[in-house]
């Protein structure tokens, strides 16, 4: 049953991701690369469907966080993003894809490599405190 659920997650995940971003004019090959990068670098903890776990927050939260003042910056400075082995361009693509796939929103304008480079140069030393500040509105 677990395997079936995982298979459903992966297949639904792929189809929904492509449809959502294709509508935004993002090339299918870029979506495929972003999905690959997500699976290889993020899904170990955030899981295949972005649902998170007992110790890792669900990515469905990203849409809500992104909409808050400072939310855009927050997503580029959390450790999972800032310390990722992906280069700035591919990390930007993953964040854009992730917001669309899991956060039910669109980064407008999309993250760019330059913006990600600036954000990840200032990683949070205490990401939980940063999250609390973001949610508290200061």
């Amino acid at each position: 049953m677990r395997l079936l659920s995982a298979a459903l997650l992966v297949t639904g995940f792929a189809a929904a991701g492509v449809q959502a971003l294709a509508a935004d004019g993002v090339a299918a090959r870029d979506v495929k690369m972003a999905q690959h990068d997500y699976l290889l670098n993020c899904a170990a903890c955030h899981l295949l469907g972005g649902q998170g776990s007992r110790t890792v927050p669900p990515l469905a939260d990203t849409g809500r966080l992104f909409a808050l003042p400072g939310g855009r910056e927050y997503l580029g400075r959390v450790p999972g993003a800032a310390h990722s082995p992906l280069d700035d361009k591919r990390l930007a693509a993953v964040l854009n894809w992730m917001l669309s796939r899991f956060g039910d929103t669109t980064a407008d304008p999309p993250y760019t490599a330059g913006e990600i480079g600036r954000l990840r140069a200032q990683p949070y030393l205490d990401p939980l405190a940063a999250r609390r500040r973001l949610l508290a509105g200061h």
Binding site: T11, A14, V18, Q35
Partner: peptide
């Protein structure tokens, strides 16, 4: 078959 299913969706 997951790779196949995922790839074909593209």
């Amino acid at each position: 078959a997951r790779g196949q299913a995922s790839d074909e969706s593209h």
